[in-house]
Design a protein around this nucleic acid. Sequence first.
DNA 1: TCATAAGTCTACTTTAAATATAGGTTAAAC
DNA 2: GTTTAACCTATATTTAAAGTAGACTTATGA
Lengths: 153, 153
Amino acid sequence: MISMRSKYALKALSYMARSSDKESFLIADVAVAENIPKKFLEAILLTLKNNGILSSRKGPGGGYSLAKAPASLTVGAIVRSFEGDLAPVQCLSVSAHSTCPECLDEDTCGIKLVMADVSSAVSAVLDTVTVADMLQRSEFERQKREKVVDFAI
Amino acid sequence: MISMRSKYALKALSYMARSSDKESFLIADVAVAENIPKKFLEAILLTLKNNGILSSRKGPGGGYSLAKAPASLTVGAIVRSFEGDLAPVQCLSVSAHSTCPECLDEDTCGIKLVMADVSSAVSAVLDTVTVADMLQRSEFERQKREKVVDFAI
DNA sequence: TCATAAGTCTACTTTAAATATAGGTTAAAC
DNA sequence: GTTTAACCTATATTTAAAGTAGACTTATGA
């Protein structure tokens, strides 16, 4: 399970990408639009900024903006901002690289070998899909639904 | 991150599969051999039994045994015994199927669409790899290391 | 049939992390 | 120099994981 932080971040960024007419977004507006607790979102957007995903300006007329185009912003980069590297076991964590506390022989640990495959599989998906892709797929589903409704009428 | 429960379960089952000369194993012995807190392992093996992965007999001469051959026991089945279905978001959980509490429109949710791909990727790995595979890969790594040592001497 | 071996069950504790909330601080615009 | 809006610090609440304690049940075999 990914955290609420990650989900809120994905929603907030999707919202910004979708409303590409605006260049800058207020925390409060995003919070209302996406139904996210404002104070919580505040911390989330700050994390995204510290990870180079958003940029910000203080004061009147300020707000947050996307630091890169939706098509070059991967879901992996966003999720990793909150979940750390997505290692299924500690010993596979590249950042805080530590051995699993219970492990007796890391080199030959079968769990590690299997989980390395899992980790690769997850990364292959998340590092490929961008926010732009997500929006597009979402829009595709919406249109599919519209059609079904039209058909019913 | 998978839980300690899952890791302990994988270790315990690997141990049993590896020691295929014995037919039955005492909790206490497995706990010592794999360095797992005995009382905790107790609960874990019970869960595995309730999931059809182990069978047991009480009383003198009793103990736990594998309910199926290591080659037909998938890592996925084991891990799912403790982590539930491995849904990255609630709305993808098949068992306790509930919508994500914060979701406004599940049908067109981009997060759900992307995470469904992640989920498939994870399952593809975990439902393919068996305990027998894990042991084999582990043994392969051990032998690789031996060779390096021989070479050094 | 009784002592012992071994799994089973219930309940609890402890610790850590996720999810928030409150309120004050700094920077920029006008 | 007042207002706007991001930024920062601290704290509360809730939940789950990890582990422990102790009593109960079932089976064996002397």
